[in-house]
């Protein structure tokens, strides 16, 4: 592709160097996660390191029937609905806002840069701000009020940026064609625009879900007395010294992978349907 010398399909040496770099990077990326996966099946000798002795599922059992670990199930029962609510709100809010930004309006730049600022402000700063705000309002912090808001302030800018990219590529003549064919504004949105940008909306949903599900700094002060899952894990890192921690890591990673798989395969399904017919 970028080879300067005459080549008959043979690759330049840089390809091999970079391919090696890439392979090492992938090992670097996934290796530790694999280590955790393997060690979560550690036997009762309860060592936190290799080698794996007497593989068993006991640490998974420990997770769901806690004796020494914290309230993992309870934390999961808060994290999952919170992530789902953040996901739905992120899609709704960033898609509608994305449409507004296709037109010029007064204050657009201000709102845009506020969103960007919300993206880059350190999570801890926002956490403090939210908790102080709630104190002044006389409200107590809770995962489904202040926690939800803190997560949205982080997920929404991401969603907005994705919608910018998606809508930037949406050819305005689709909407004009719909208008030309007698569709009302609402019909145009429902029948033409939403179906076309649907893959982008799935991407926004994926971001909304995982940013909330895995968020730590913004949850730290804002979820109140009941922990979400990442906070529970954090607590466990300091006081649990059994492979139950790894078992928990394996379980949350599997859930993350499930969510990613659902999102990516639905995007792939839509794209394939469009390029190959029903």
């Amino acid at each position: 592709m970028s080879s300067a010398s005459p080549s008959y399909g043979s690759r330049p040496w840089t390809f091999y160097v970079l391919a090696l770099l890439f392979t090492l990077f992938v090992i670097f990326l996934y290796g530790p996660m694999l280590a955790v996966l393997v060690l979560s099946f550690q036997g009762p000798s309860a060592s936190l390191v290799f080698p794996l002795r007497d593989p068993s599922l006991m640490w998974f059992d420990e997770l769901f029937n806690p004796r020494r670990t914290g309230d993992v199930v309870g934390a999961f029962n808060r994290s999952l609905p919170l992530a789902l609510v953040v996901m739905v709100l992120t899609v709704l809010i960033s898609v509608t806002a994305g449409f507004a930004f296709r037109r010029r309006f007064k204050g657009a730049t201000l709102i845009f840069y506020t969103a960007i600022a919300s993206l880059i402000v350190p999570g801890l700063v926002l956490s403090i701000g939210t908790i102080v705000t709630f104190r002044y309002l006389g409200l107590s912090a809770s995962w489904n009020t202040s926690g939800l808001g803190a997560h949205l302030s982080w997920a929404l800018p991401f969603g907005l940026l994705i919608m910018f990219a998606v809508l930037g590529r949406l050819n305005p003549s689709y909407e004009e064609a719909a208008y030309d064919l007698g569709a009302s504004k609402w019909q145009t949105v429902k029948e033409v625009v939403v179906p076309i940008v649907f893959p982008g909306m799935i991407a926004v949903a994926l971001f909304g879900f995982t940013l909330s599900y895995d968020e730590f700094p913004r949850s730290w002060l804002t979820v109140g007395s009941k922990n979400t899952l990442p906070l529970e894990i954090w607590t466990m890192t300091t006081n649990v010294t059994s492979p139950a921690l790894y078992a928990l890591g394996t379980v949350t990673t599997i859930i993350s992978f499930l969510v990613i798989a659902i999102a990516l395969s639905s995007i792939l399904f839509i794209q394939r349907k469009r390029s190959r017919g029903k």
Binding site: A115, T133, Y136, G149, A150
Partner: peptide
């Protein structure tokens, strides 16, 4: 109206908190 929900959330959970900080 379309940009209102975003603005409300950003105001309530970003502008006000950071302002209060």
């Amino acid at each position: 109206l379309q940009v209102a929900p975003l603005t409300v959330v950003l105001t309530l959970f970003f502008v006000v908190p950071v302002g209060l900080v």
